[in-house]
Design a protein around this nucleic acid. Sequence first.
DNA 1: CGGCCCTGACCCGAGTTTGGG
DNA 2: TCCCAAACTCGGGTCAGGGCC
Lengths: 348, 348
Amino acid sequence: MSSGAEPRERGGTPTLASIAAKVGVSINTVSRAIRAPKTVRPELRRQIAEAMDELNYVPNRLAGGLSGTRSDIVGVVVTSLYYSEFASIIDTLQSALLKDNLQVMLANTRYDPDQEITLVRSILSWRPAAVAIIGVDHPAKVTELLKSSGVPVIEMWDVGGGIIDSAVGMDHEGAGKAQAQHIIACGYRHLAFLGSMRENDMRARKRARGAASAIAAAGLPDLVHSVRQEGGRPALGEELVHELLDHHPQIDGIICNSDVVAFGVLKALHERGRKVPDDIGVIGFGDSEAANYVTPSLSTIRPGRHRIGELTAELIVARINGEEPRTDVVDWELIARNSTRPSRSPNR
Amino acid sequence: MSSGAEPRERGGTPTLASIAAKVGVSINTVSRAIRAPKTVRPELRRQIAEAMDELNYVPNRLAGGLSGTRSDIVGVVVTSLYYSEFASIIDTLQSALLKDNLQVMLANTRYDPDQEITLVRSILSWRPAAVAIIGVDHPAKVTELLKSSGVPVIEMWDVGGGIIDSAVGMDHEGAGKAQAQHIIACGYRHLAFLGSMRENDMRARKRARGAASAIAAAGLPDLVHSVRQEGGRPALGEELVHELLDHHPQIDGIICNSDVVAFGVLKALHERGRKVPDDIGVIGFGDSEAANYVTPSLSTIRPGRHRIGELTAELIVARINGEEPRTDVVDWELIARNSTRPSRSPNR
DNA sequence: CGGCCCTGACCCGAGTTTGGG
DNA sequence: TCCCAAACTCGGGTCAGGGCC
């Protein structure tokens, strides 16, 4: 127990051969007893099961995957994990995959494209049965690797553009447009887009673009951007609001790129004495667990996180079983709370 | 691209043999070119690298793991993922393991002991180089499987009791005691413990026990429990507060089992017209990102999540390299904010 | 003779060892 | 000495076939 120095103690872990020797049958019979129990006599089967239990036998799936059909690994590549939507997606996804005995192998790129290439290569080296990856915009090498691997690929969270194989996501540009339309419908006129905007977060860019187009369509002054190339945190929201209002005091509506940033925005506005929602409106994105519990409660967009995880799992299994690739678009929902004035026009 | 039906297209994925054939050398020269470049002529090496790139060669680590020394997989078993501390731990852990080319294989038990047995067995079937698992209290079969596997095991989050191999965690009983001591120091006298308390969440039980002992030591009335066997959500906090105050109107201090539950508690207290922190004090656990942004801001315990992830990664690498098992205790910190009155006595 | 139950031989793809030019 | 190749290893899947009732 004490030393992990030896690579693996010779003969330490039991194999099919250990069981076979113990029961007095061939390796092959033991193998069949596991994979196709009906082909083995019940009495023998019982003895084998007993021996396996006694020796704490655990099959070596590396060996199984090598020789065989599939590896039962699903590679999951996300761009962030903490303070992010993706923890929820992974949660749902992995528990759905459990039914099919598929194991999740996790990688987190942290929005670094070089890291993404490395990690995708690394995931592929385990010969996964499928790969689920956040986003539809990847470095060319990633697309090439995934395509040439022949493995089913499900792109998650976003949709649109050139899908590698299959996709399950939402329309981010539409969501950004809806954020702006809601805040316009509430009577705010001088709008800003605020939050984290990392270079490779295409979803954030799409939402900003959607918001800008809605504002142009409404004939309002141009959307002011107050963004920074770093992850979203509440403190970032505070900093950006101060910066924003120092330069653009006329702003009366803030479209946030995420709820966590909006939390900081609400706090900073309170400190500056700007009343929400009377003087200024705020809308978030994500519907985080605390959105309904800050003061005032936060209007936001609720993406179908759970649904995305579920559908991705379904699609993975379908693709493994040879069904055709497809793209599923998941709905989001606008949740109007108290950080925006009541609007007359219907949501969405 | 369209059909995933065939197990794996014969000859589809390039192997060492494909490269060897293309360049006109033996398989094993290619293998050496990868693992020990110095043993291969530079010119040949260049040709091989070229061929690998052209064919999008990705080594098969199943095969590597089978034949060899290690599998480079680290199994990570958590009890929950969404709305939990563990997303952060996994985040840190996996990015630290990246440096050593170790891949995270993820499993989520959702506090189900049967699931835990299944998942640990499943993880072990991949012959991981190490296993990191939440908690120190496991079903007997899990302990047995892990012990007999001979794989280094790092138990995370909690410490104390019979450690299987190594552990990195915090003292939950001490944290619970500190929650109570703080709230007592702030002058509250009639205390309740409130939140999620799943049967197999031993950490929650330990914190409750710690709180109870601090209260007994202070000679105050017994801790009132208002808990339920389900996951923590803000709405649960709301429900439990109403239930609690209907039966125990004298309560003037609430110790919450998690911040998300505390968010609901604050809201419900506001609705009932009980002033926080004047009439009643509230303390959370976890220091979630929103804790400083609800109204009033939430006093809480900040566990060393990041540190736990880091130390676990370090310990995994150390154990793989044959260093001795050890147990690291990570500090937590009491963060006093505005949901409790200012206290005279020093924290902790 | 047919079906049931079992076995031997070979395969997967890379790591490792040995020995030879 | 440097570079390379053949042969064998890991553990289980697969296929063809054999003995027995």
